[in-house]
């Protein structure tokens, strides 16, 4: 292993000059700090959901409403999108522009598919009269999932921007650093979804 490669372990940007890695190190560390902040935001929304889950105000409960099958498909779609992003990261590491764009495209489609599934679920619930105004429980449910969904939407917009930037600038220092951070963001959202699946859907089915 060359010294260049050992310079900053954990940052997956090969073929770069030390100056690139110094730059990436600072911004990536900043992005981790932001994710820590975002994780607290989600933690508080989870805590709110936990305190509100039985506050149904005479309205429907989670056990009556949730369709675990749909949630499972959503989970699969999002996990697959993390896998496809991972393939994109491999392409980025090898500096291969075309496969990178392809895998980012696949990730984008899966991300949009996830948002579509989530909107369909919401539409179904609203059709049954279970709106965010029905009860404290449903308020916290919709807000928790929408904040996650909005994050996914931001991630999708980010992917589109990065596809355009790869086409415009090629795999420049900036572009590689940004895709790296986009990856952190995307996997973080996957992680949050896993927690949603286990704290929102599974207990409702198990009860």
């Amino acid at each position: 292993m060359t010294t260049e490669m050992r310079h900053h372990p954990g940052i997956n940007l090969s073929h770069s000059r030390p100056e690139d890695e110094r730059h990436a190190e600072v911004t990536v560390f900043g992005f981790w700090t932001f994710l820590m902040n975002d994780a607290i935001l989600f933690a508080l929304l989870f805590a709110t959901y936990a305190t509100m889950v039985n506050r149904t105000a005479g309205g429907p409960t989670g056990a009556e409403l949730f369709d675990i099958g749909n949630a499972f498909v959503e989970t699969l779609v999002l996990l697959l999108s993390s896998f496809s992003f991972g393939m994109g990261a491999v392409a980025l590491k090898e500096g291969r522009e075309h496969p990178l764009k392809l895998w980012l495209g696949v990730t984008l489609v899966l991300g949009l598919g996830f948002i579509g599934l989530e909107l369909r679920e919401f539409a179904g619930l609203i059709g049954q009269g279970a709106t965010a105004q029905t009860s404290g429980f449903l308020s916290s449910f919709y807000v928790l999932l929408s904040i996650h969904g909005l994050h996914v939407l931001v991630g999708c917009i980010w992917i589109v921007v990065m596809l355009a930037q790869v086409s415009t600038f090629g795999l420049s220092r900036q572009v590689r650093s940004r895709i790296l951070r986009l990856g952190l963001f995307w996997h973080f959202l996957d992680l949050v979804w896993i927690v949603i699946f286990t704290t929102v859907y599974l207990p409702a089915v198990a009860s």
Partner: peptide, 30 residues
Amino acid sequence: IFAIPGLTVAGGLLALDRYLGMHFFTNDGG
């Protein structure tokens, strides 16, 4: 970093109650 999300969530949820009629901190509706 660790504390401000509390302000964002408390203020944001209160705003959702006020703007969209949700029931996070209301007396009724759970």
